[in-house]
């Protein structure tokens, strides 16, 4: 029986992180890549809270605040960039973002 130990939470966090990373690797739609990035961030917050809970400290919990804020800021700016790119190239496929090739 899988009990809710620290190991289990960390395993879940790692699993989520891996899924998110895989998504970033294989998906070609920029927006979906972004969502997978967010998934990775959420995974890291889960790990932090788990550690904080099991160590009895507040540091992990408080750090989640900041991660949340930074994630929000990142999403805002990233999406603005994507919109600007879409205006120029009419596509958000990652394959087409290759102006830096060679």
């Amino acid at each position: 029986m899988i009990t809710a130990t620290l190991n289990a939470y960390l395993a879940i966090s790692a699993l989520l992180f891996a899924i998110g990373f895989l998504g970033v690797l294989v998906r070609r739609d920029t927006l979906i890549i972004f969502m997978c990035l967010e998934l990775m961030l959420v995974a890291s917050t889960l790990a932090l809270v788990a550690f904080s809970r099991f160590n009895g400290t507040m540091d992990g919990n408080v750090f989640v605040f900041f991660i949340l804020t930074v994630a929000a800021a990142e999403v805002a700016v990233g999406l603005a960039i994507i919109v600007a790119f879409f205006r120029k190239r009419q596509t958000v496929q990652v394959d087409h973002i290759d102006a830096l090739k060679n």
Partner: peptide, 26 residues
């Protein structure tokens, strides 16, 4: 899961900020 970890405020913040604002923006 956060609630299960007794971080109630964080759970609520997650839903409010992340699910409410960020995903909506997406």
């Amino acid at each position: 899961l956060f609630v299960r970890l007794d971080a109630f405020l964080l759970a609520f913040l997650l839903l409010l900020v992340y699910a409410g604002a960020v995903v909506a923006l997406f």
